[in-house]
Structure formats: C-alpha cells, structure tokens
Amino acid sequence: MEKTILSVKNLSKTFNQRNHSVDAVNDISFDLYKGQCLALVGESGCGKSTIASIIAGFTAPSGGCVMYHNTQLSFQNKSAQQQRSTMQMIFQNPLSSLAPRMSVLENMKEAVIYHEKWSNEKIESEAIRHLVRMGLSEKYLNRYPHQLSGGECQRIAIAKALMRQPDLLICDEITSNLDVCVQAEIIRYLIELKQSGISILFITHDLSLTGQLCDYIAVMKNGKIIESNRTEEILNHPKKEYTQTLIKAAF
C-alpha cells in the first residue's frame, strides 16, 4: 500500500477585503504519496499557489487541515517551522528565490545550518554534488544570483532544496519563467528526484508539463478541485469540459 506523505483535508482559505471576501480555496482535499508527484493544474488565480503557501506554512487556512507524515501541521507559531523541516519549496521567480547578497554557496549553506552540524568542507562538497546533479559545476559556488541566468538560478534553487534530502518538494510554477529547453531539463531533474523517493507537489497552469512527471493530476477552477485522477486518465479521458479546454490549450 502506498504511504501517504501529505494529506490535505477540506482546506479552505478566504481573503477578507474591504467590501467583500474572496474564497481563494474552497473545501479542497487530496493525498500525496511517497515518491509520487501530484500536479495541481488550473488557470491563474484558481487558488493553486494559496494551497502551496498554506502547506508551506506561509499562510494560515480559514478551515480544514493539512496532515504531513500523519501529523497535523500548525501555523504561525514556533512548532510550525519545526514540523516542516523535511519540506522544501521552489518558487516561480528564480531570481527572487535566492538571497541577492549571498553567494550560491552561502545560499546553499542556509538550507543546512539550522538543522545539521556539518563542517564547512561537508557543506561545500554536498553543494557541489547537488550542483553537478543539476547540471552545473563548482565554479558557480562563488557567484551571486544577479550573475546567473533564470534557468541557472532555478537549478540552484532546486539544488539548495535538495541539500537535506527533503521528503516533500513543493514546486510552485517553477518553469513558468523559463524557456522550453530549460523547462525540459528541469522536468528531467524532477523525474530523477521523484525516482529517488522525494514526493513532489507540482503546481502549474501548463498541462503539457505534467505528462512525463506527474502520477496524479487535480484540476482546479475557482478555488475547487473539479476533477482529479491518474495522469493518463486525465490527459486521455477528461470528463469535465474545463479540463478538455486546458488539454486543448496545452497540446
């Protein structure tokens, strides 16, 4: 039986504005299993990134709960950070994912030093190992984010996230700002990660990226999951008209 890493139950998030409130996420439930990839797909503004933000602990939900390793996650308190120590997130904008005043090595060091007591030599060798894994070399260690391209920044952000071998990787539109070649490379790296046992929550508006990488797809519209199934089923036999439209747009 597949082991559940992440279980989202009846999650909802309402943003209260001056005159009205917006239900960004409305009664969402899904499970993510170990070593598998679940894609949250939908148009911009449908609530995908809000879900990622809640799971990562940046935003508190209005209702529902998130179970990670069978523990209910808390929000905006000290234990919230500790509970997520084996979780990493990669963001849409590659340049803003890395601290601009820190070198690549310093950025990668940050992923480790708060949990592990590694020597500087070990941190550096691990950083090089993960950079090489991402198709980069040790010459990048002393560079600064503004000296790198978007694709390089994103690969370094992934390498940084892998420093402590996370159990869950949340990828929030990580290929949106990249060209097609770099997109394909990133997807290839993510497939390797998945095969190494890391679970991936892959958030995208582009269904064409999900085919090779994802095991399951949940299609979202207006804060709700309207259809979810195994990737082949969704791509070959979509039930909802909205899913068919997304597939037509992607292929």
Binding site: Q81, E110, Y114
Partner: peptide
C-alpha cells in the same frame, strides 16, 4: 514577502537570523 525570506523560514532560520542575515543587509 520576498521568496528568499520564505525559503529561509522553511529552511528553519529563526527570526533573529532572518532579520540580521537577510532583512538588515537589504
């Protein structure tokens, strides 16, 4: 609200480190 601050929080950085390493130099 920058992503690298969120990433630092998720990496386990305490508020003092976030302030002195990331916010103050910026």
């Amino acid at each position: 609200s920058d992503n690298y601050i969120k990433a630092a929080w998720l990496c386990g950085a305490p508020p003092t480190s976030i302030f002195f390493k990331y916010i103050l130099p910026s």
